[in-house]
Computed example of a mutant assay.
Amino acid sequence: MMLPTDPAQNLAKLIRCPSVTPAEGGALAVLEDMLKPLGFAVARPTFSEAGTPDIENLYARRAGDGPHLMFAGHTDVVPVGDEAAWKHPPFAAEIANGEMYGRGAVDMKGGIACFVAALARHVEETGGPSGSVSLLITGDEEGPAINGTAKLLQWASARGEAWDACLLGEPTNPERLGDMVKVGRRGSLSATLTVLGRQGHAAYPHLADNPVRGLMTLVDALLDPPFDAGTERFQPTNLEVTSIDVGNPATNVIAARASAAFNVRFNDTWTVESLQAEIHNRLDTASRRRKYRKDRKEPVEFELAWRDNPSHVFLTHDDKLIGTLARSVEAVTGMHPALSTSGGTSDARYIKDYCPVVEFGLVGQTMHMVDERVQLADLETLTQIYRRFIGDWFGSR
């Protein structure tokens, strides 16, 4: 039986599955067919929650006597956008000028294809690692992320699964394969701030209370001064106002309320709780300022609604995991990767609660774009890195 040792062939099969969240699209079935010849027992649990689509996921384990390495990722992809704008059909896996085109080529079917190929080569060459290898693959990373990795981890853990380390195959390299390993992630906290005013005629402002003036005061307090100057391993905490809305189509009416949505990406200076307290304190203090409301003595009346499921900041300290991966990257590419905590959130925020986790995958320059594509040479290079990492982490290279 032919083992799935060719990452390009593996990726082409996965791309041809239109697995746009929340659709499984056949991608998990294709992956199961790749894994079973390698000795994996495969389960595909579906999780549900009111108000969200049902999501099918995959957990596969090749059992062995020794440590347990998890590879994590997702087969769901974002929508293609304007399909007519693609040079090559988004689910055809066509190759041109040494690149394979398709939605998910980089984010992140390519990483999965390479890990499967690397493991297949290891099995073919050595009989496989002495320990256990598992793949934890969700279909809900690009969607609400409610019925995906978090529940899949709980499901597997309840059945006795335990892991010593995890490699997450998200695209981590900004320019070239070998640039960057992610060893942590900033936290993410979102909220909606609503200022309550009194509706009235724009020509008679003394009879109204314009909430926009109050909102300007409060938003200014959120943006300045900076929350911190950054730490040894993390960028400075940054707050971005992502939406301001009054919902008022009339130009001669002062609205009754105004709102602003914001997101904070924060470093290890803060916890979710301490950052929430700091934001509340800033708003409470600013509500009594009169810069834009000189004729108002009462404080700005506001409400603050936190979004559910904030992401906590974390940093991985596992020397074996980080060192083995960094040495594998350097051995194959000649580059010493930066150990970074930059970028957005990922499913590593859930995995960190079960075992140490690092992230390393393809170059992410075309992810989510029209004409998402990957260099075939990068697929082979990443497979070689993963192959070396598997052998060295298990001590059986």
Rank of each mutant, 00 (worst) to 15 (best):
H122Q: 11
Q154H: 05
T285A: 15
L218Q: 00
D295T: 09
G131F: 03
L119F: 04
A191T: 02
P4C: 08
D76C: 07
L167K: 09
H206K: 09
I254T: 12
I351N: 03
L275V: 13
A29F: 10
G214F: 00
V253F: 06
P249W: 11
G127S: 08
F234V: 09
D318C: 14
F115G: 01
W163I: 01
A260I: 15
E330D: 06
A286H: 11
D245H: 11
T251P: 02
A331W: 02
R121M: 11
A41H: 13
T237F: 02
Q9W: 08
I351D: 03
A96V: 05
T383M: 03
V332K: 12
T149F: 01
R349T: 12
A331R: 15
P45L: 03
S287P: 08
T285D: 15
E298M: 01
G364C: 00
D224Q: 14
A326C: 11
P205C: 12
G214Y: 06
W155Y: 13
D268R: 04
K291F: 08
T172V: 04
V272A: 12
F314D: 05
G334I: 14
P4G: 07
F314S: 02
P337A: 13
D54C: 08
A338H: 00
E99Q: 12
L222G: 01
